[in-house]
Design a binder for these strands. Structure first.
Lengths: 176, 176
DNA sequence: TCAACTTTAACGTCGCGTCATCGTCC
DNA sequence: TGGACGATGACGCGACGTTAAAGTTG
């Protein structure tokens, strides 16, 4: 289950129906773990404009907005993308959506092929970027686990009452 | 091989020897992929004070400095820690170093045990934090790969000249 | 001497946090 | 009616980028 999945059908009302359940800014924030400031800022950046405004200009968010915000938050927290990069990715998504429409309304096989190839190229770039981050993180984890293992064997030695052998305790000196 | 490892003995001169090869700020930056501004800022924050200054007050970095900077960069880029957190981790490292010294100069088994336990607790916290980030990234990657697979099967269909079946193309709508 | 590099100082940027002041909702 | 919630500024901060003005190096 991920931020990227479509909303697996709301059990109550259809979110696309007019008059569906609209949320105010703080409810959205509490639901998603974002502050009101952040939501307003995202709107300022053009990342997300709430579905509607109340009589007194209160922001009103629908389920599509929540979905999009979850996506944004995922990119920000999980992958550490900048909001500018996220804006790009969202435009990519929008392009994909448009492409799907074009895909359906054309019957030219070459064009269809081009559309899908384009989408594939986008997602491949995303995957590459994500994997690079992941690999570096994995390296860090392994290094830390190595140190942990070292410490644990140290503890085992202590428990066994072993004399401090001329131990090769080489490690980064960092005091300054 | 990681940022966290000690420098496996320099083949040329001993970096700790006085008069060893000292680098100026831009050389360090180019080597590590950091700007001069960043290096000066890190000094301002107290994360790293270069080993020496020239006659005319040029910053001069030695190999230990490079090592420490690589460590800092790793924590920043790979794990996404804030500089404040990195400062903490570096103090942790310094504490570990001091602890190793204390460890060697004490013979009280209880104290030794306490020192190592403390070190282990630190590294466990680090690992936990790193793994949390890694897990979330992995989730993102899987989602993207799922979309890629989807697209590829689409392409295969196109190449086989398949008619556009009433395809369940559900995905996040994001156009606004 | 001179180009390339360095210094400190200071302002700009991004992604928000945090008031302050005012209006809205029920 | 009030008391919680919301709106729009506007300033602050972290982690730098980017001039600007002056000094240093080989």
């Amino acid at each position: 289950m991920s931020h990227l999945d479509a909303p697996a059908t709301l059990d109550s009302a259809d979110s696309t129906a007019p008059g569906a359940h609209l949320l105010r800014i703080q409810e959205v924030g509490a639901t998603l773990g974002l502050t009101t400031r952040t939501l307003r800022y995202y709107e300022e950046l053009g990342l997300l404009k709430p579905a509607a405004r109340s009589e007194g200009d209160y922001r009103l968010y629908d389920q599509d907005d929540l979905e999009r915000l979850r996506f944004i938050k995922g990119l920000r927290d999980d992958a550490g993308f900048s909001l500018a990069e996220i804006g790009q990715l969202l435009e990519d998504e929008a392009a994909r959506t448009r492409n799907r429409d074009r895909f359906r309304t054309t019957s030219d096989p070459a064009e269809r092929r081009a559309i899908v190839d384009d989408a594939l190229a986008r997602v491949e770039r995303q995957i590459g970027s994500l994997k690079a981050k992941s690999d570096r993180l994995t390296e860090m984890i392994e290094a830390a686990e190595k140190r942990r293992k070292h410490l644990r064997s140290h503890i085992a030695d202590l428990e066994a009452g072993v004399e401090p052998a001329p131990h090769d305790d080489r490690q980064a000196r960092s005091g300054r």
